[in-house]
Design a binder for these strands. Sequence first.
DNA 1: CATAACTCCTGTAGCAACTACAGGCTCAAG
DNA 2: CTTGAGCCTGTAGTTGCTACAGGAGTTATG
Lengths: 137, 137
Amino acid sequence: MTEHVPVKGLQRSQLSNRTGCNIETIRYYENIGLMPEPPRTSKGYRLYDETHVRRLRFVLRSRELGFGINEIRGLLDLVDRKCQTCAEIQERTKPHLAEIRAKISDLRRIERLLARTIAQCSGEDVPECPILDALVA
Amino acid sequence: MTEHVPVKGLQRSQLSNRTGCNIETIRYYENIGLMPEPPRTSKGYRLYDETHVRRLRFVLRSRELGFGINEIRGLLDLVDRKCQTCAEIQERTKPHLAEIRAKISDLRRIERLLARTIAQCSGEDVPECPILDALVA
DNA sequence: CATAACTCCTGTAGCAACTACAGGCTCAAG
DNA sequence: CTTGAGCCTGTAGTTGCTACAGGAGTTATG
């Protein structure tokens, strides 16, 4: 009369499939407190539900948008406290956007430099490449 | 009659100052084989010279351009073998440029998304922010 | 019903590319 | 001669995962 079949709920692999999140990463997010500890079966298996799916999607989406773990922690805080306002969210998001724009312009600078250098390179079988010269200089 | 004054050469802090490289990073680069082991004084102090300055500058410049440690190892290999050709260098550099361009377009996608979302946000003191909605959806 | 194959559990080690610290010497100056 | 700086070493921490080892439970097939 033991209930060895999960009455309802998703196991880790199912949550993984639903969200596309690596199965090990789920446990990792739990360990660092981004995901709440789910209830367990009598044998200790994790049992997730739709709230976990939503929360994990939130986390994954935020990561995709380049938020760091701590930034996400902050966003989740706002969500959990349920007293978020547009103003608060903007406050967190705008500096992040600024960071991303800074990264983009960094990379574009690098791109221009690299492209220019490669263009100077004959691509022939001769030694003394202008790319290396640019690196050494 | 012991020579306790370094006859010639730079200590770690001086190499650090000349190149702007963090002093601990220098030892790190030595450990992983990007920098050669320098000669030592009788008491074990490292003694660098101008070749080390040049090599470290090469490494730092390459890092700035976004090359990973292993890519730099490859470039240094070419330099050391002294048989590099333009063609070889281009071969290593072009895929790297492609990577950087890919990163840029990723970031720009994120930037557009984030900027659009923030624009929808009233910035007022009301709850239910479209940014969070975008994240949850 | 036995056994193989699968999933789950835990803790821990590894990746990049550093950075920082602890504990011990050496060295130059006052 | 003592003080403080700078050097030495090995090791741990950082961020965001990913992967493995070793054990327990569960499912499928003969």
